[in-house]
Every structure is written in C-alpha cells, then in structure tokens.
Design a protein around this nucleic acid. Structure first.
Lengths: 293, 293
DNA sequence: CACATCAATCGGTATTTTCGATTTATAAAA
DNA sequence: TTTTATAAATCGAAAATACCGATTGATGTG
C-alpha cells in the first residue's frame, strides 16, 4: 500500500470514472486500472464494483476511503507543518548562555520573543563547559559564550559577536573605582572573587596571571555570578570580567585592564552540520542587529 | 512521499542507526540512506543530523515523525477494518423485502441479528419495482421477492428459496373459508382487494385472469399489505396471495387455487458482479436453513 | 445495428527502487 | 599519534515496477 495508490483510489472514488480520474491525475487510464487492482489485491477485497462499464464503490471501498483520506491527510499535514516550521510559525529554540553575556542576550531575546510569540524559547544558563557539553548532545541550538580554548572543536561553528575589554569590576565607593586604568600587577594587591572553574572567564584569568608570572589574591571562587556581583558591591572584593558582562544598572565601576590581549571575544557557538532552523538564523540576525545598535 | 519511505524513516528514527534499521527492514543500508534522503529532499528539510557516523533527529524530524506515524497507522487501520469486515465483525447489510415474504425473513433476521449483533441491518419493505430499482442503484445487498418478469435482468443473480401455492385469503367466518379448493372462475364471483400496481403479486394476478380470459371483481387496490389483510379480516373482501404470505397468527383462511402454474417462487435477488459481503452470504445461509426447518 | 464509451489487458518502455562495492568520515583502540 | 572498526554516503549495475499506447471486450446509446 502506497500513498500514491490511495490518492488514485480517492480520485477514482470521487469521479466514479477511471478515464476521467486518470486524466485529472495526469496518468493513463491503464495505469489507474492497474494501481487500483494492485491495491485491491493487497487489501484482498474489491473497492469498486465493475458492472459493465459502470464503476461503483463497494461497501469496503466506502469504508476504506475514510482511512485512505486520513492517511493521505496526515502525511500532507506533516509536510505543511514543516513548511510552517520553515517560516517559523511554530517551533522551539534552546539557547545556552553564560552569565557574562546575559546583557547581550536580553535585548535580542525580548525583540525575538515579541516578534515571534509562537516560538517557544528556552534559555539555559551555565558554565562554558556545561554549554559545550549540551551543544555536543544537541540539547542547544546554539550557545553564547566567550571564545576560549575549551570550546575550540572542529565540529563547532563560531560567529564573532563583538570584542569586549577585560575590566576590573568594583564597587563605586571602593578605592579602585577612581582609577582610569589598572595593570595586572596592581590587581594582585586586592582580594578577588572569581567565577568558579568551568567558567571560561575563570580559565582566562588564571591563564592570564600565570602567563605574567603573577599570583592573584583569590579570596573567593563562586559559581553563581549574580551572587559574585553582590559580593563585589560590598566593596570588600573585586572581580575581573568582560566589560559587557556588567550592566550599568548593576551600579558597579569597571576599570580597563592595561596590557596586550586583554580583549575577550563573544561568540555564537553552534554545531556544524546540524540543521539550522530558520528561527535560529533569525535569532542570530537579531542578535547581530542589537549588538550593532 | 510514500508510506514505504515513512516506514523506513520511523524505523531509522527508532534505532538512530541506519545500518541496523536497514537490517530490520530487510533492505540494504544504501537503500535506506537513499530513501531517507529522497524524503528529506521532498520535505525540503533534513530529518536527521549526520554528525560523522552519528545520526540524530532534527527538530523537523521529531515533529514530522508524529505525522508519519499517524499516516501509516491510518492506512493500517483501514486494512484491519477490511479484515474485520471479511470476518464480519462490523459492517452493515441492507435487505429489501416484499410484504409477502416478511414471514420468511423474520425468523432468519432474528437469528442473524442475535448471532451477529455488531452488524447493522436495514430492512426496506417495498414493491418489487421499488426493490429492483434499489438493487440497480446498489442501495440493497439483496432483495427477497417472488419471481416475476419484471425482475428478469441479466445482471441479477437469482437464488430459489421455495415454491408457494397461490391461495385465496379470506376471513375464517366467510362463505369461502369452508372450501377445500377454488378455481379462478369461481373467484370472479367475489369482491377482491388486491395489492396495488408495483407489487409482483398484483401483476401476477392480473396476468393470470387475463390469460384465462376472466375479469375479476377488483373492489379495492391498496399499496399497504397489513391494511389489505385487515380488510380481508372483515369478511367483506378476499384477496389472492402466496400461502406463505399469510401467517397462522393472522387468523385468516387460505384456500388453494386450482390450476396449472399456480405456484410462486420466492427468491433472493442480488446484483451480479457486486462484491458479496461475508455477512450477506451468512445471511443467505441462515435464510435457507430457516426455510428448510 | 452501428457507434461511442469505458475498464481491462497486453507488451514494451521508462522510471525507480534496490543492491553490492566502494568511499569517506569518525569514533574507538592500540 | 596511528591503527582499526564502524557507520553513512555514494556510485554503478540490476531488478522491480510504474507507466504508457494500443487493443480488446463489454455495454450503454442513438
């Protein structure tokens, strides 16, 4: 049994005239006859009564027609659904994001969710390690993260979003807050609270100090960034983050770090060879647009 | 899009391994690959992500799978339904019957309906003309009627049920009721109530008198047999019917008609070349059985 | 009765499915 | 890293089958 045969059958049923049905189906009458016969053989029951040159539905034919119709319709509906998906009338996207890029995501997220309310969106916050892992398991459509060694795998696609200088983040009333610039060496004087292992920023900072043969005063490592920022606000500790990781609303001061390669690159990371939903591509577009505002 | 491809797709989706899926489908891996690809081309969207040797469902694939499954299921259900029909677990039969044969039908009807309660039965009473017309329009599975010229068409099948002598039907208290036999000529003396035109019996009686160059005293023609019998019960009128058309319960006397060819043959009439449902064949069997009791 | 019509059938062609072998890519193991 | 095993894609040939045109047979119609 094939959908083709069911289509032929329904047309023949509609017109009760093989010749005309064949014409409308753009096949020859002999083909239609043969295909109907084949279907009947498989079903082991005649679908039509042939009385001379007249054709009538048998009871079996009448009953079977409903099923044939529904079978064809289900397949057709599936196709239509996919067309809709193409035009993202429906669907779901899952986005992984590091805390450091939440201010980048938010405006694009708001715009996208407003513009395409039919599309369900899931946001997963996590460390770079976690996000990479989820990407590999196809649990994310893409992730927003800073570029780093961990994530350099050949089956990933990388799209640059922007560069952001690393800054020391501190409370506005702290001694540091008045500085225009700061060097790595100077930072070692202050107690730091840093993201815990797993965060790209953590690795970046550790590598940075190691490269310059300096040992920072890491007072606290913490795996929750909002809490980390709360600690910084007390003025007792400072941290190192990309400038865009801190919002003006946070009420914190950011002091650029002096030196080479003190920029971090924010990226969209996605799996190569995985079908990119149109909704996802549209999200990319809005992300880039929001960033360039 | 063909059901075959949908089946292949669902198996591949189930196992997420083309080689194994192909084995279970008893096709080669290359065939499976090609058919999946063809389906994807038609849907214009990949159903699987191929990451190296790994295969994963895309979102489109996951969504489409439901439709594919339902499409296949509907077709399969149709087939199952037809199998059931074969074994008459379901279905419907429509039987045409003349009033004259209602006592023949009833016991078979009761037995059949009791034994196969799932099968819907529709009984259509009508004149022979009406029944023949309905048979031609495939509105009946078969008709029970007496043999007559009208119904002799080559695209009909005839099965003899039994022969029944024509009798004069009269009230038990009427003068006629005492007779053991009666001739046509004698009948002309009595006022008759006969079935209206359209009934085979009507034609038969008219022809009969005409053949013998007699003119009967037809007081009333009526197209409702129960009412006709009520009229006969008054004793004022008499009628001519096959013996089996009158039940003992009716409380009427039947007097055989003397002469040649005074028998009527009850028959099952059905369309040639029209698929005979198993339920119908079973009904035939029960009919014959009940008659031979 | 001649004629037109319609479905079935037949033989041949075109298309499509299928297969086996090979290639390519990747994951796992050494 | 290199080797090995594994899985999907690809290629060319084959088998299967859908398709067509012509014909036949049967039937309804003028």
């Amino acid at each position: 049994m094939e959908l083709r045969q069911l289509k032929y059958f329904l047309k023949a049923k509609e017109l009760l005239n093989f010749t005309e049905a064949a014409e409308q189906l753009n096949i020859s009458q002999s083909t239609l006859s043969q295909q109907i016969k084949q279907l009947e053989d498989e079903l082991d029951i005649p679908l039509f009564n042939r009385i001379g040159k007249r054709v009538n539905l048998t009871e079996a034919g009448a009953l079977f027609a409903d099923f044939a119709f529904q079978s064809i319709n289900k397949a057709q509906d599936g196709l239509l659904m996919l067309r809709d998906l193409h035009n993202f009338q429906t669907g779901k996207i899952t986005i992984g994001v590091t805390y450091g890029l939440r201010y980048v995501l938010t405006p694009a997220l708001i715009r996208f969710a407003t513009q395409y309310p039919q599309i369900k969106i899931k946001i997963v916050f996590g460390t770079s390690e976690e996000l990479i892992d989820k990407l590999n398991h196809l649990e994310l459509d893409f992730a927003l993260s800073f570029f780093g060694d961990i994530a350099v795998e050949k089956h990933f696609d990388y799209q640059n979003l922007f560069c952001s200088p690393m800054t020391v983040v501190t409370a506005p009333n702290s001694a540091l807050a008045q500085k225009e610039m700061i060097t790595l060496e100077q930072i070692t004087q202050y107690p730091l609270v840093l993201p815990a292992k797993g965060y790209m920023t953590s690795k970046f900072v550790h590598d940075l100090f190691e490269r310059h043969a300096l040992s920072p005063n890491i007072a606290i490592e913490i795996n929750d960034i909002p809490t980390l920022l709360e600690l910084v606000k007390t003025g007792n500790w400072h941290t190192i983050l990309a400038k865009t990781s801190v919002s003006q609303k946070d009420g914190l001061a950011t002091i650029p770090l002096l030196g080479e390669n003190m920029d971090r690159t924010a990226m969209i990371i996605s799996m190569k060879e995985v079908y990119q939903k149109k909704a996802v591509k549209e999200f990319y577009r809005i992300l880039h647009e929001e960033i360039n505002l």
